[in-house]
Nucleic acid binder design. Structure first.
Lengths: 246, 246
DNA sequence: GAGTGGTCTAGACCACGAG
DNA sequence: TCGTGGTCTAGACCACTCA
C-alpha cells in the first residue's frame, strides 16, 4: 500500500508498541540510532515519529527522548445528567487543578453566553492531569449576575461539571444543555498546555447550559486530546416521532 | 512566541487567506517560489504547508498545486430526532452516493451490534461530496434478521440517517441512540477516500440504535473531517435531577 | 559537556497532472 | 515533456535535559 519509507518505519515501531516489545513509558532508541537501524536519514525517521505522535502512541520530549505514551483510561464527556456518576467514576484517576478569574465578555464569549459585550463574567479554568501528564483543559464561564460562586476549593470533574452542582446550590437550575463537538488540531497555546504535538487531533466541545427560562447560566470550552478522550451522548426518540414512524 | 521559521511562513500565508488576499479555490504559488520568496528551503516551506493543511485551510494535490480550501457549510451531525429537519437543511448541498453489500460480522462489528460473530449483516456505505470534494464517510450496518431493506435508491442524509426512516417503514422502531464521539487522525484509507492529509483531525462517531426491547437494530461508523463538520447534542435535565437539585 | 530532540539547508530524484 | 508536489539524504547548527 504505502511505498514510502517513513510509513514502513512508523509501521515497524507501531508494531513494537502494540505487541508489547515496547511498553508504556519505555524510551525509544535515539533518532540517530533509529536512522542507522532503518537505513534512513534523521529527517525521514522524524516523519515516522510525527505520525506516531499524531496517533497518540508516543510523546516527544526535547533533550530527553521519545517515549511510549501511558495509556491511562479515557476521559469521558457527557452532557447528560443521567450518566454523571459513570462519568465521574471513569474520570476519578485524574487530578484537577482549578483557577478562577474575573473578566469581561469579549465578542465571542458574549455570543456564546448570549449577553452584551463587556458583561462581567467569572472564568474557571480546569486543568486535568494524570500524574505529570496534562490531559484535559476546560474553561467555564458564568455571568456574575447569574451567580457568584466564589473561588472553588477543588474540582471534582475535569470538565467543570461541578460548576453546575454549585449553581444548583445557589438556586440556579440547569434545565437544558447543548454541546457542540468538533475535531481540530490544537493552537500552539493549547498544544503547549496539554503537552501534545500541534498535529494531534483534539476534541473541542462548546457546552451551553440554560435554565427553564432559556437564560444561559453557564458556558464552557473544553479541549481534550482525541487519543485519551471521548464524548458519549444518548438520545431517546420522542413519543411523537414514534407515532409518526408507526 | 514561535521563533521557528516555518511558523512564520504559515502565519504569513494564513493571514493572506483570512484577509482575502487569497480566496477559496485560488492556487498558492509553487512551493519552490514560496521557498525563494521567504528565503527558506523547500522542506521548510512544506512544514508550513503541512500545518495549514492540518488546519483545513488548504488542500494539496500532487502534480497540480496547493489550493485554498472551499469553505462550504459544515456538516452537522445529531443523534436527536428533534433536530432532524435542521440537520437535513444544513446538509442539503451535499451530494450523496450510497452502495450496499452483504457481509458477516467480524469481532469488532459483532461487539458493536451485540450479535454473535459471523452474523449476516447489510452494510451501507454513504459517501458525501461537495462537488468534487468528498466530505463525509458513513458506514451503516443492519443485521439481516432485523430487516432486509434492499438496495437504497439514493441517500438523503450524508450520515445514513435515512436508514432509520426505512427501518421504521419496515416496522422496526428506533427507541434509543447512543453516539460515541472521538477525535483522531484518519488512517491511510480514510485519508485517501476523503482526500485529506493524514494529519487532519477527523470526528469519528460510533452510533448504536436500539429498539424498545434493547436490541441493536442499527450501528454506524462515521468519519467526518473536523474542519467541515460538527456534532450537536442537546440534553435536558430529568425531573428527578431537578428535584434533587432543589 | 555529552546526548538528545528540533530546525534548517541544498540538492537530488520520484510520481503525478496536464498540455 | 514540463511543472508540480512528494520523498529522501547528508550534514549542519541550535535548544534542551541531565549528570
Amino acid at each position: 500500500m504505502a511505498t514510502n519509507r517513513y510509513s514502513h518505519i512508523a509501521d515497524a515501531i507501531r508494531r513494537q508498541i502494540t505487541t508489547g516489545i515496547l511498553s508504556a513509558g519505555d524510551r525509544l532508541p535515539a533518532e540517530t540510532e533509529l536512522a542507522g537501524r532503518y537505513g534512513a536519514s534523521h529527517v525521514t525517521v522524524r516523519e515516522a515519529l510525527a505520525a506516531l505522535e499524531n496517533e497518540g502512541l508516543i510523546v516527544r520530549q526535547q533533550g530527553r527522548g521519545n517515549f511510549v505514551r501511558h495509556t491511562f483510561g479515557q476521559i469521558t464527556y457527557s452532557a447528560d445528567y443521567f450518566t454523571a456518576d459513570r462519568q465521574a467514576a471513569a474520570n476519578a484517576v485524574v487530578e484537577i487543578s482549578v483557577t478562577s478569574d474575573k473578566l469581561e465578555a469579549g465578542a465571542e464569549l458574549a455570543a456564546h453566553l448570549r449577553v452584551p459585550p463587556a458583561t462581567p463574567l467569572t472564568e474557571y479554568v480546569y486543568l486535568g492531569s494524570y500524574g505529570a501528564f496534562p490531559c484535559s483543559l476546560a474553561r467555564v464561564y458564568v455571568p456574575c449576575d447569574v451567580a457568584d460562586l466564589g473561588v472553588p476549593g477543588e474540582g471534582h470533574s475535569p470538565l467543570g461539571d461541578d460548576i453546575r452542582d454549585r449553581l444548583a446550590e445557589a438556586g440556579v437550575h440547569v434545565a437544558n444543555t447543548v454541546s457542540r463537538v468538533t475535531a481540530r488540531v490544537p493552537d500552539s497555546e493549547e498544544a503547549w498546555t496539554l503537552r501534545i504535538g500541534t498535529g494531534t487531533a483534539v476534541l473541542a466541545i462548546e457546552r451551553v447550559s440554560t435554565d427553564t427560562s432559556g437564560r444561559v447560566v453557564e458556558a464552557a470550552l473544553l479541549v481534550l486530546p482525541g487519543h485519551s478522550s471521548e464524548a458519549v451522548f444518548a438520545a431517546a426518540a420522542s413519543v411523537g416521532e414514534m407515532e409518526v414512524a408507526g
